[in-house]
């Protein structure tokens, strides 16, 4: 399962999650962009869904551990990363061929990006809400806290404000993340993808 090329892709995915996610967090933008590496790892391991799930999960959690040094909120959303990995393995992996072969402006490409992004967004919003509400009382350090604040001022209850905030900000954010992951997947050399799919010989001692 965890061959050397796959360990490298896990590390690359984690590094991608950390670098882009941390920049967005520090800029307080109302998006997250902290799962691009997780989604990309799943795409790179298509069509093996089990490997895609395990490796993207590992990339997500290593990314969380490292990003947690700068964003102390992030490690508490570990379950959200498991959900994103699962949806990526189930849904995004199926779109890998479209993302690789079809033109960027073709309806299947655009449709798959929207479908995968919206699905991941809805699932991650639903999974994240209990953490946001029960662990932090709706108060988090990301830009989406502004959206929670707006819904609260509009008279919503805390739970529904956090849920509406998640449903308002997560799907667009995840559509953007799937699009970036798909663009990076298209740019990845075929040789690297072939390395990820072949079994590794035992190293000489």
């Amino acid at each position: 399962m965890f061959t050397t090329p796959r360990l490298i892709v896990i590390a690359l995915g984690a590094a991608l999650n950390c670098s882009i996610g941390t920049i967005v967090y520090l800029l307080k933008l109302p998006v997250f962009l902290d799962s691009i590496g997780t989604i990309l790892v799943a795409l790179l391991l298509a069509p093996d869904r089990l490997a895609a799930f395990m490796c993207s999960w590992a990339a997500g959690w290593i990314g969380l551990a490292v990003s947690g040094l700068i964003n102390p909120f992030l490690p508490w959303f570990a379950v959200t990363d498991v959900a994103i990995s699962a949806i990526a393995a189930l849904l995004v992996v199926g779109a890998a061929k479209t993302f690789r072969d079809r033109a960027l402006n073709s309806p299947p490409f655009i449709g798959q990006v929207l479908l995968c992004g919206i699905m991941i967004g809805i699932v991650s919003a639903v999974v994240s809400v209990p953490v946001v509400v029960y662990l932090f009382g709706g108060v988090t350090g990301s830009g989406s806290a502004l959206v929670v604040a707006v819904f609260l001022k509009a008279g919503q209850h805390l739970m529904s404000a956090a849920m509406l905030s998640g449903l308002a900000s997560d799907p667009p954010d995840k559509v953007l993340q799937v699009l970036i992951a798909a663009l990076l997947y298209r740019a990845t050399p075929g040789e690297f993808i072939a390395m990820l799919r072949t079994k590794e010989p035992e190293p000489a001692r």
């Binding site: 965890f2 050397t4 360990l7 490298i8 896990i10 590390a11 690359l12 984690a14 590094a15 590992a58 290593i62 490292v66």
Partner: peptide, 9 residues
Amino acid sequence: RVLVITLSL
């Protein structure tokens, strides 16, 4: 191994 590779990366 993955931790060392991540640090090296």
